[in-house]
């Protein structure tokens, strides 16, 4: 882990304040930002651990807890809400048998809420990892989940 993080901090060496870029890269490489990982980042960048932790927990796209293999983010903003996002949430909770913020027993999916994904013309929408899916219906949801 230390070698990976060192490589990341070195690559971003030319940036004046690289903390958030480093955290993005560490998460992409190691899956999430563990306490151990944050300690190494703090050491390599010579920044107090309290600040590194403060930043890592401020932003919703940075995870300080281990997530499932795939993270489902359901849009909860008004345009999706009026197109039935609440029903999609209930469907997801039923299908995966988990609540928001939880991970399935087989570690396959985590369920999170997110603010507007910027694809309101196809509301309601979800984002799984980096991919967005719109115009959701119960049936469509099944076929989407099957792909993972």
């Amino acid at each position: 882990m230390e070698a990976t993080i060192e490589e990341i901090t070195k690559a971003l060496d030319s940036e004046r304040t690289p903390l958030i870029s480093v955290l993005h890269a560490v998460q992409a490489e190691l899956g999430y930002l563990s306490t151990e990982g944050l300690k190494i980042v703090a050491k390599k960048l010579d920044i107090p651990l309290s600040k590194v932790y403060g930043v890592a927990t401020f932003y919703t796209l940075l995870d300080t807890e281990e997530k499932g293999e795939n993270v489902i983010r359901l849009c909860e903003s008004a345009p999706c809400h009026i197109k039935g996002a609440t029903n999609i949430l209930t469907e997801l909770q039923d299908k995966l048998d988990i609540d928001v913020g939880e991970t399935t027993d087989d570690n396959k999916f985590s369920l999170e809420m997110t603010s507007c994904l910027g694809i309101c013309a196809v509301a309601p929408a979800i984002m799984i990892n980096g991919t967005v899916y719109g115009n959701l219906t119960s049936k469509k949801l099944d076929s989407i989940l099957d792909r993972y």
Partner: peptide, 21 residues
């Protein structure tokens, strides 16, 4: 790249974020 915070659209918050805070 931002990391998921609506408030960062506010200009002084945005600058703090670039500054790694």
């Amino acid at each position: 790249e931002g990391a998921g915070a609506y408030v960062c659209g506010e200009e002084t918050a945005l600058l703090k974020s670039i500054e790694g805070e």
